[in-house]
């Protein structure tokens, strides 16, 4: 057996020849830059990477990457990704979607792709707005968000996408943000290595229709007080002084000050591999301003993937029945012969 070394690639090798058409200042640029960087470091052949998207600003992503790409229809990207994985299980398949695409029109497919644990990586760019249709509220827009279709303010409770992903039994659930490039890159590295359905929410600023909606975490002056970076095995500490932490009071998490309300030992320690998803679920509900919003990997567990289970059944069928024989298949019923 000969092993062909993978060519050494640079981020620029992942740039397609297409002119990028996102608005100036769009958060998508930062995510694309980190994606190219991370992809170029992966020990995986470029021709086996496929990016599949739905409809919306985020879904233009595949056009700007020099991998295989499929810009599909609104909300349905996970279905095409699933079919592609069935045809070619050894591809690395990414889905790029947005809050409208993935959580509104495509909510059903997102749930089912995640629960099947098929080996696809879903990146959901959340800007809490419909950008491509020029500014309507989305399923993640906060109560009171004023848009062209909600002039009096949105009266719909927003979806917490991480809670939804956990409820759908995703085996990898994480969040990052466009304006923390280092964290975006490390999160993409983690998701690339995961086997199974992975879900990453990426806070992404829409410069035109929802500018600054995530300021409380993207502004470096405010970030440390409002963002909790989760690290496996480490206590959940945040704050400018690094002295705030999360403690569990019965079933309710609370924000405490270390040294004043409690000792460091009382602070919850993050366990992304916990079999019980309850703690991850509690974290997924943390919302500004009552709680710091969490970034990092909430859940990372290993379960048999759909791909593996399918391969197993295919192999079992072959072992039990032998390679399919048409002549036998046709005759698999009562036969009669006419002379």
């Amino acid at each position: 057996m000969t092993v062909t070394a993978l060519p050494t690639l640079k981020p620029a090798d992942f740039a397609s020849d297409q002119e990028i058409r996102w608005c100036p200042g769009c958060g998508d640029y930062a995510i694309l830059a980190q994606a190219k960087k991370v992809l170029s470091t992966l020990p995986f052949p470029k021709e086996k990477m496929v990016f599949i998207s739905g409809i919306g600003c985020s879904s233009r992503f595949p056009y700007y990457l020099n991998t295989y790409g499929f810009h599909t229809i609104h909300g349905r990207a996970p279905t095409f990704a699933t079919g592609l994985k069935l045809a070619q299980p050894d591809l690395m398949v990414w889905v790029v979607t947005g809050d409208g695409d993935g959580l509104s029109i495509g909510g059903n497919h997102l749930i089912h792709a995640l629960r099947r644990n098929i080996d696809i990586k879903i990146l959901l760019f959340n800007n809490e707005i419909y950008g491509l249709t020029k500014g309507q509220y989305s399923p993640t827009s906060r109560l009171g968000t004023k848009t062209k279709t909600s002039p009096g303010g949105s009266i719909e409770a927003p979806i917490r996408s991480l809670s939804l992903a956990l409820a759908a039994e995703a085996t990898f659930v994480a969040r990052t943000m466009d304006l923390d490039p280092g964290h975006t890159a490390s999160t993409l590295q983690r998701v690339a290595a995961h086997k199974g359905s992975a879900f990453v929410e990426i806070y992404q600023n829409c410069k035109i229709f929802n500018d600054g909606v995530f300021n409380y975490v993207t502004d470096k002056a405010l970030r440390s007080d409002n963002a909790l970076y989760l690290v496996h095995g480490k206590p959940m500490i945040f704050g400018k002084e690094n002295n705030k932490g999360i403690r569990l009071n019965g079933l309710d998490p609370e924000v405490v000050t270390i040294g004043k309300d409690c000792a460091l030992d009382d602070i919850l320690v993050h366990d992304e591999t916990a079999a019980n998803p309850m703690m991850a679920y509690l974290l997924s509900r943390f919302s500004y301003p009552d709680f710091p919003e969490v970034f990092g990997v909430l859940r990372y567990v290993s379960e048999p993937t759909y791909d593996e289970l399918m391969a197993k059944q295919m192999a079992e069928s072959l072992a039990k029945r032998g390679k399919g024989d048409l002549q036998k298949l046709f005759r698999n019923d009562d036969l009669w012969t006419v002379e």
Binding site: F70, T82, G83, L84, L86, A87
Partner: peptide, 14 residues
């Protein structure tokens, strides 16, 4: 909808 999407995804994959 998912069914047709999966079938097309599979065709895309050969």
């Amino acid at each position: 909808i998912a069914a047709v999407g999966m079938a097309i995804g599979a065709s895309y994959g050969g």
